[in-house]
């Protein structure tokens, strides 16, 4: 319940300050526009469009998800949070906020992308949805943990994508592979291993996050 209350506080704060939403929307629009302009009249392959989809999502996540902790640090309210809630509550609340933000952001990206790119045609929608859901959960957990680490650093803007890249790389590679399979085939049989990798990634990240967050948060 406390984590949900923290999520509601963050949501109310976000709706008033538009701290993350504005930068996310601008980033999505600019990135998709740049890809559209750079392609021009060229015909790109289906698989390339699938790969670019996750590139847009990766960089959009990098522009908005760090806000969960960076905004608290910049406003000086980190200590206030420490005084009202346990580290577990804080991480759960922030993770819930980032989960909602990631899903909202990625649904918008997916809709825009499928409307604007003719080559982006998913044949196996249920496989794509499984990958999409597990992938979004993984992105949200990893981004929240990395945001808590970089919040106290002086060069947050640069550090966030740099630190995220190696941590999100296995997730992104698996997601690109699964998207390719969802565009290529209508069966599940060849995708179980990749789906299991996504599931394991999410479980490992959530376990590592709750174990590490106490140390990150206190010092």
């Amino acid at each position: 319940m406390s984590a949900y209350a923290l999520f509601k506080k963050d949501l109310a704060s976000e709706l008033r300050t538009r701290y993350a939403i504005n930068s996310l929307v601008m980033f999505i629009v600019v990135t998709i526009s740049v890809i559209l302009f750079s392609i021009g009249n060229e015909k790109i392959s289906d698989f390339l469009s699938g790969g670019l989809f996750w590139v847009v999502i990766f960089f959009s996540a990098m522009s908005g998800l760090s806000r969960a902790f960076v905004s608290e640090e910049e406003r000086g309210t980190t200590l206030t949070l420490q005084l009202i809630a346990s580290p577990t509550t804080i991480f759960s609340g922030k993770l819930l906020f980032n989960l909602i933000l990631v899903f909202a952001m990625n649904i918008v990206v997916a809709l825009l992308y499928s409307a604007l790119f003719d080559a982006f045609v998913i044949k196996n929608l249920s496989l794509f949805l499984y990958a999409f859901i597990l992938g979004n959960v993984g992105i949200a957990i990893a981004s929240t943990l990395i945001a808590s680490i970089i919040a106290k650093a002086s060069s947050k803007g640069t550090l966030y994508p740099v630190l995220s890249f190696p941590i999100l790389l296995p997730l992104m590679l698996t997601l690109i592979d699964l998207t390719k399979q969802a565009m290529d085939t209508t069966t599940f049989s060849s995708s179980y291993v990749e789906l299991a990798i996504l599931g394991c990634y999410d479980v490992v990240m959530i376990a590592a996050s709750f174990m590490l967050f106490d140390f990150i948060w206190k010092d």
């Binding site: 406003r75 309210t77 809630a85 609340g93």
Partner: peptide, 26 residues
Amino acid sequence: FVAPYVILYDEFSAVENIRFFSKIRG
């Protein structure tokens, strides 16, 4: 805890701040 470096949320009213904090504390 009261200190000059304890910062409350500017975007909320005083009573909203207290209400949010109490709900988070449970």
